[in-house]
């Protein structure tokens, strides 16, 4: 085994190998995470609704996601007649790739990071912005009015919530003076940033939920209004990929929140990765919790909330923090 590694290192260089192995690891993580989150969503929903939820397949229904994915794999891929074929095929692919890249820079534990890039957070923000593109392509390419409305909503929503999301992360960047995620975690050795910046954390989390199109901000796929929104015309594995991307996005939003505000992998006794996963999945649970307890906001309320409340508050927060640091 070590021989194989040595040969590989000599052939393609240590860095490249690290990235390749890391990407494979990330891919596995993403798939397992999404599968487990579908199970978790069912369980959370079930218990909040006083049901038992999935329990037949495997212990506690743990094998259920695999049964589901096998079913989805076995389904015929139906392509409606009047879709724009190129865009229709492209959308799920574009949807999935950016979420993979985002994981490359996240520090899961001390040294457990595929690549520590010194502009790490920029990479995440840049790539996660691409997901809105895929939703728009899906909505436009489907040639369906419900999809189109969903796509238009998605774009408006993402533009509105990208700004407070960025501003609240910027505050932490100013405090640390670095864009590298590793530096940000290390800077929280003494105190987690959530205690310095509770408002920034709240704004980030709300904007994050809106970015992932989850209830109460699930307007692009509002079931009671738009049937299924942008993915109305998608079925089988293509639909599953949208779902995979959605759950991975939830994971990324929670992971970045953990890294920026909750001290990342820092914590006593237990190894770093365990702390990281505990914190991340707690936030994931909160997002699932939202979905099963809140009704949906209206479109104008959603935009008003961002432009009239979140953005001014984050600007004030930014200026005040900057002023205090300068003093």
């Amino acid at each position: 085994m070590t021989d194989v590694l040595k040969i590989a290192v000599e052939a393609i260089g240590q860095d490249t190998l690290r990235v390749i192995l890391g990407l494979i690891g990330v891919l596995i993580l993403v798939v397992i995470n999404a599968l487990m989150l579908t199970w978790a969503e069912r369980k959370v929903a079930g218990h909040m609704q006083r049901r038992i939820a999935a329990k037949e397949v495997g212990p506690f229904g743990l094998i259920q996601p695999i049964a589901d994915s096998l079913k989805l794999l076995g389904k015929e891929l139906i392509t409606p007649m009047k879709v724009d074929r190129v865009l229709y095929f492209l959308a799920p692919v574009i949807c999935f790739i950016p979420v993979l890249v985002s994981f490359v820079v996240i520090p899961f534990g001390e040294g457990l990071q595929v690549r520590d890039i010194n502009v790490g957070i920029l990479v995440i923000l840049a790539f996660s912005s691409l997901s809105v593109l895929s939703i728009f392509i899906a909505g436009w390419g489907s040639n369906n009015k419900y999809s189109l409305i969903g796509a238009a909503r998605s774009v408006a929503q993402n533009i509105a919530y990208e700004v407070p999301l960025l501003l609240s992360l910027l505050i932490v960047v100013i405090m640390v003076g670095s864009l590298s995620l590793k530096d940000i975690v290390e800077a929280q050795k003494g105190m987690w940033f959530i205690l310095y910046q509770p408002i920034a954390f709240l704004i980030y989390f709300i904007a994050g939920v809106a970015e992932t199109n989850r209830t109460p901000f699930d307007l692009p796929e509002a079931e009671s209004e738009l049937v299924a929104g942008f993915h109305t015309e998608y079925s089988g594995m293509r639909f599953a990929i949208f779902f995979l991307a959605e759950y991975t996005n939830i994971m990324i939003i929670s992971a970045v929140a953990t890294t920026f505000f909750l001290g990342g992998y820092l914590g006593p006794y237990l190894p770093g990765i365990v702390w990281f996963l505990i914190k991340t999945y707690f936030l994931v649970f909160v997002i699932l919790w939202f979905r099963w307890t809140f009704p949906r906001v209206r479109f104008d309320q959603l935009l008003n909330f961002s432009w009239k409340i979140l953005i001014p508050v984050s600007f004030i927060n930014l200026i005040v923090t900057g002023g205090i640091l300068k003093l």
């Binding site: 609704q49 006083r50 049901r51 699930d218 009671s224 099963w292 307890t293 809140f294 009704p295 949906r296």
Partner: peptide, 16 residues
């Protein structure tokens, strides 16, 4: 009505 507004959980409670 709540399901129309996007809140899915009350449906199960009222069915109880």
């Amino acid at each position: 009505f709540l399901a129309d507004l996007g809140g899915l959980t009350p449906f199960l409670y009222v069915f109880d």
